[in-house]
Amino acid sequence: MDLDALYQQIILDHYRSPQHAGLREPFDVEVHHVNPTCGDEVTLRVKLSDDAEPVVRDVSYAALGCSISQAAASVLTELVIGKPVAQALVVQQEFLALMQGRGTVVADEESLGDAVAFAGVAKFPSRVKCALLPWMAWKDATSSAMNGQPAHPNSPKENHHARR
């Protein structure tokens, strides 16, 4: 196993200098997701525009966890803030496919940007959930903000939604 494939410099940079970190106002929805097996936690807020085709205005977060989950949250904000929600959801799907590909999926740098650095994580099965934690939280929050419904009725009890 190649350690440097997992801990790409980009990941360590985001871990040390997280982008868009902290919880900010205004926001539409706040979610709290935990990884019950390891205890990693993220509280994440989304603010969407009021347009008919909404745009991601802001994503803010407080993350408690390992370098992979922290860096994933940072990269996520860089990728989705400013994008139309529909387009950001496509990026989320691509990232999910990359993480679940066990190292066989070729990352598209055009759409995934810094997130291509996570390609190596897919080869460490025990760490895939770390990378996905903030992305799942963001998807959950975004779909709640879009339709006002709890997105994951089956999500663990500790997870919560709050709507402004």
């Binding site: 190649d2 390992c66 760490r127």
Partner: peptide, 12 residues
Amino acid sequence: VHPHDVATVLDT
């Protein structure tokens, strides 16, 4: 260093 990162480095 988060414990996950410690464990992964040791695992390698």
